[in-house]
Amino acid sequence: MARAQTVAPEQYVPALPKGNVQRLPPAPTRPVRKVEVPRTWAWSSQLGDRALPWLLPLAVLGLWFLGVEQGWLSEQVLPPPAYVYETLSDLFASGDLWINAAASLQRVVVGFALGASIGVVLGLAMGLSKTIEDYLLPTFNAIVQIPVLAWLPFALLLFGIGEPLKYVLIAKAALVPITLCTLQAFHQAPKGLLEAGRAYGFSRWQSVIFIVLPAAVPTLFTGLRLGFTKAWLSLVVVELVASSEGLGYLIVYGRQLFQLDLVMAAVVVVGGIGLLIDRGFDYAERRLNRGRTPAAGRLS
């Protein structure tokens, strides 16, 4: 114990001389004067901000309607929105949508969980040990350059055509960004704070838990979100190639029967679910970051 002052805890005397200390008056609290913002103005600008994200999708939808109306493309190639909507409701009513979405979700959840855990462990191991990093990182960087589809023939032989194949390929897709971002978090650890930690006698683990990881939250979340996006994208690819259910399968099936309404409906569902989950990550990150703002700002 490197504490020169050997004061037993029970003999603890407060550091500050009681009573005769002239304390500073409290710092002024926040100003109370509020600036009046004209009401109507605030309202309309708030509404405008909320509407912004919808403008582009609505415009595309409008273009779609218009295109069908004007007959720019034949109905077989570009089914009218109403038709796609009908197909979607049919899928929903018959339960097919749920069966396929559930199959896809299960694959992505299992694959993502697998990839994320291995990725975090790999990233942690490389972050904690320079030796491990030197051994692994170059090989890792080489392997990740190979796309999912290129692995497929080999993976097919190794894992067969069943579920494990899908889990492994999805896991691999998620693993890459998550490993790299976890490692990045260690490389970016704030040096000044690490030094402060050393001054307070932090052990290696304390430094990791109290400094490296909290500082890494934004980077780790970027990794998780990227990893999920990659997993979701490769899910569809994997299902396109080898499956008899799932959203990707719906797309293949629709294409084979030239039912582009079915393809479109499946695409809408894939995009919708992906977006929802991404929002979920965003929400979780903001909850974790509550109170603090990131050191980064936004150019305005």
């Binding site: 490197a2 504490r3 000044g192 402060a196 050393r198 001054a199 307070y200 006698g201």
Partner: peptide, 9 residues
Amino acid sequence: TGLERGIVF
């Protein structure tokens, strides 16, 4: 480092 030495950076 040691807890007996403190610093204000």
